[in-house]
Computed example of a mutant assay.
Amino acid sequence: MSITPIHIFQQGHDVALVSGMMTAHLFAMFASSPFSGWLCNRVGISATIMAGLVLMLSVTGLNVLSSSAYVSCLSLFMLGLAWNILFVSGATLLVKAVPYPDYSPSAQGLGEFVTASCTAISCFIGGAALNDIGWKWINYGAVGMMILFVATRLWRNLEYFPGHFD
């Protein structure tokens, strides 16, 4: 999210396009919360996390295939949606994992702090990485990380539900 506007400016596009892209991204990030909550209740937390990871993998794949401004706009919208799905399902999983309900708010607060801290660090690193290695290589790294996350999620599902995927 933080380096896409810089990437678009590097391609020579104007502020109006970047503004529209960020509006679409922020809309997807926050307006999709009722959908994400419904999805968690309807198909379960694990399946919702997997859906968010697959959507995030699609975003990184799009960014590897094309660096045009319009593909970046679509991928930024999808990134906002994937972020929301993963954030809502992750927060739900965290609260359910706390054995004592009295500690759930503290656990959620700590989770929010860690998320915000990682986001801030990533924003600082993202600009330097865009300058040093470029847009494509950042997204190649993101594809690798997303494949690792999807594989880990599948492995955990198979471990807890061995007969579920037969």
Rank of each mutant, 00 (worst) to 15 (best):
Q108D: 09
W155I: 08
V98C: 01
S106N: 10
Q108W: 13
I147H: 00
M56A: 09
C73F: 15
I133H: 02
F149D: 06
F30D: 04
G134Q: 04
L26K: 12
G109W: 13
Y103Q: 08
A142H: 00
A31I: 07
R42M: 11
W38T: 00
A97F: 03
A142Q: 00
F87T: 02
G134C: 00
G144N: 05
F113T: 14
T152C: 07
V43P: 02
N41M: 14
G44Y: 10
R42P: 06
S72W: 11
N131Y: 12
L110G: 01
L110E: 06
N63Q: 07
S117F: 14
K96V: 09
S72T: 12
T48A: 09
S46N: 06
M78S: 08
L86P: 01
F27D: 06
L81N: 02
G141Y: 10
G80E: 04
S122F: 10
A151K: 04
V64K: 05
F113E: 12
L74W: 11
M29E: 03
G134P: 03
A107I: 00
M145D: 05
S106D: 03
N41A: 12
G126A: 15
W83Y: 15
C118S: 08
V114D: 01
L93T: 03
G37T: 12
A51I: 02
W155S: 00
Y140T: 06
L65H: 06
S32C: 08
G134D: 08
S75E: 10
Y140R: 05
P105T: 09
Q108C: 05
L110I: 07
R42F: 11
S89T: 04
S68N: 13
H25M: 07
Y140L: 08
L110A: 01
V143L: 03
L26V: 10
G141W: 13
A82C: 10
Y70R: 12
S58M: 14
A128W: 12
A120M: 13
G80M: 10
Y70K: 11
Y103N: 05
A51M: 14
N139P: 07
A151E: 05
R153Y: 02
S106W: 09
N84I: 14
A24T: 09
I49C: 02
I138T: 00
C73T: 15
S89V: 05
W135N: 00
L55I: 02
T115M: 12
V43Y: 14
F30E: 05
T119D: 10
S32I: 11
W38K: 09
M56W: 13
N131I: 07
S104R: 12
L53Y: 08
L74C: 09
V64A: 01
A116Q: 12
V71M: 15
S68M: 14
I49K: 01
S58F: 13
I121H: 09
L154V: 06
A128S: 07
A107F: 13
M78P: 07
V95C: 04
G37H: 14
S72K: 12
